[in-house]
């Protein structure tokens, strides 16, 4: 970061955080898929309680 010019630094700071978005999409979709698998694959087949 120290070797960057002020212009390059500003460009990076103002650009969209692509890596963060990629990470959030991977983690979120992984969590949603795991939850749906547990719900439809394990919880519901065991039979409802009421």
């Amino acid at each position: 970061m120290n070797n960057l010019t002020e212009e390059e630094r500003k460009k990076i700071l103002e650009s969209s955080p692509v890596g963060t978005w990629a990470l959030i999409i991977i983690v979120s979709s992984g969590m949603v898929i795991a939850w749906l698998l547990m719900y439809y694959g394990v919880f519901l087949p065991r039979g409802p309680i009421g």
Partner: peptide, 22 residues
């Protein structure tokens, strides 16, 4: 375990749960 049967049993009350064991 391995079923959804789970409930709390509080003294003074009847805990009632309906289920099926597959």
């Amino acid at each position: 375990p391995m079923t959804n049967m789970s409930t709390m049993i509080v003294p003074g009350y009847v805990a009632q749960v309906k289920t099926l064991l597959h």
